[in-house]
Design a protein around this nucleic acid. Structure first.
Lengths: 153, 153
DNA sequence: GTAAAAGTTGACGTTGACGTCAAGGGCAAG
DNA sequence: CTTGCCCTTGACGTCAACGTCAACTTTTAC
């Protein structure tokens, strides 16, 4: 299979495939004229690479994992690396959940039938849960944002 | 409060705060000599901004959300935006979970007591679950990666 | 044979959230 | 007065995963 076939089946650009090869993540045989030739398994490999990229692993790290992926045999350092990345991913999921909750709180408050969303009645929807010790009227309250023009033309 | 205080309390750099202001996400009053003065609420605001950045929202989008955050009153477009970003976050969490599962499968297989991790016996640990229709010996199997030197000096 | 489609290397461009100097001003302590 | 710390604006650097264009060769379709 040539590069375009792999690209289509894996859903990436040919540029990405050449980049992966450049980074040492992917290797290809060459036809007599110099074109890259891949086995079908390359499609799965590329999908794995994509998955790891999506999870935020940089190519450097993915490269470290490759020896295990290829041989099924890993050094202790590789295992530590996998465990560390697993932890990073779990932490990232928690961060995402927290941000989603913040958005949810904003949305929920917007949907509550409080009369005209009176801002004086609510806590800021983005405040964390500690009870916000009375921020006695401080002299500087000039924290507003200018929303320019939305222009949803 | 001056910029250094906010930076410490919110756990970001002063450069970041000036960047937020530059992007319209944060406003400050100025002292007679031109120094930025913030109310205490700025700390919470910066933490929210950071949370949204961490969740992958670009400053452009955060800027769109600011009118609601400030006034508690949102246009329909802002609600759509919040819903869309909520969906993006949920999708990102699913991607992370999938990548973590892939890592888990790799780790699990490594810990199984198969004799010498014989690569001929196993499916690639990173293969998805469809049963991989017999990839009849294709002529090109040159998909190996060079791991350079690890050099954990 | 001829044109279109696909592949090659090389090299520069992009994007976003800052990091990092550079050069200078303001202000309390000693 | 000087030392030291914090502040200011301005501007260039960074890093990663590609996008994109150029100039050219190979393969494919008719």
């Amino acid at each position: 299979m040539r590069i375009g076939d792999i690209a289509r089946q894996a859903g990436v650009s040919t540029r990405a495939l050449r980049y992966y090869e450049e980074q040492g993540l992917l290797t290809s045989a060459r036809s007599p004229s110099g074109q890259r030739i891949y086995p079908e398994s390359a499609v799965e490999r590329v999908r794995l690479i994509q998955q790891l990229f999506t999870a935020g692993l940089p190519s450097r790290i993915i490269l470290q994992l490759m020896p295990y992926i290829d041989t099924g045999h890993g050094s202790p350092e590789v295992f530590e690396l996998m465990a560390a990345e697993r932890n990073r991913i779990t932490a990232a999921m928690a961060d995402l959940a927290a941000a989603r909750d913040a958005l949810d709180r904003m949305i929920d408050i917007a949907n509550q039938p409080t009369p005209e969303h009176c801002p004086a009645l609510r806590e800021p929807p983005w405040a964390p849960y500690h009870p916000a010790q009375a921020t006695a009227a401080d002299p500087t309250e000039a924290v507003l944002v200018r929303s320019g023009e939305a222009g949803t033309a």
